[in-house]
């Protein structure tokens, strides 16, 4: 069930558009942010009923856009390392290996304490400060092994 705050946020989103369906991306984002980073069946059903859509249509939107994690729980800190061309030129693969080693997980996995999930992503538009990664909403740029260690240490 959506919380009161989430409902309010969704109502605000609905004001932006002439029809309800257009708010589906906002609705999914609101729910994902409020649910520790992923979306489950019940969320989609509820969004469908609020937006007067078919559940399948909500499902369709949720799985088209890669930032929605449908039925894919992620850790508290979702580390997404860019591995596109500019970052790769500047050593992204090395950073990914370093993270795998430090967190002791493979890309795509979550640490047993559910604190970190490690993913790779395509270009995040931060190419001049490569290599870089995004952890939840924030960008971390010009990465080196030491910098990564420090960042991880500061994450609670």
């Amino acid at each position: 069930m959506l919380t009161e705050n989430e409902k309010k946020e969704l109502q605000a989103a609905l004001k932006k558009y002439p029809n309800r369906r257009s708010a589906v991306m906002d609705a999914l984002r609101i729910v994902q942010n409020g649910r520790g980073g992923h979306i489950v069946k019940e969320d989609m059903l509820e969004i469908a009923s609020i937006l007067e859509m078919q559940p399948a249509e909500v499902n369709a939107a949720a799985t088209f856009y890669t930032m929605y994690n449908v039925n894919k729980p992620v850790g508290k800190h979702h580390i997404q390392v860019c591995r596109n061309i500019s970052c790769s030129l500047m050593g992204a693969e090395h950073i990914i290996k370093h993270l795998e080693r430090t967190l002791d997980i493979k890309t795509g996995q979550t640490t047993p304490d559910k604190k970190f999930t490690l993913s790779t992503v395509e270009c995040l538009g931060s190419c001049a400060t490569a290599p870089m990664m995004q952890i939840n909403d924030d960008y971390y740029e010009n990465l080196t092994d030491q910098k990564v260690d420090e960042i991880l240490k500061n994450l609670k």
Partner: peptide
């Protein structure tokens, strides 16, 4: 009826029902 849709995208796109 509008109960079928495409899920996922690219070569993973699948025409099917809700989940």
């Amino acid at each position: 009826a509008n109960v079928l849709t495409s899920l996922n995208r690219g070569d993973h796109q699948e025409e099917t029902s809700f989940l």
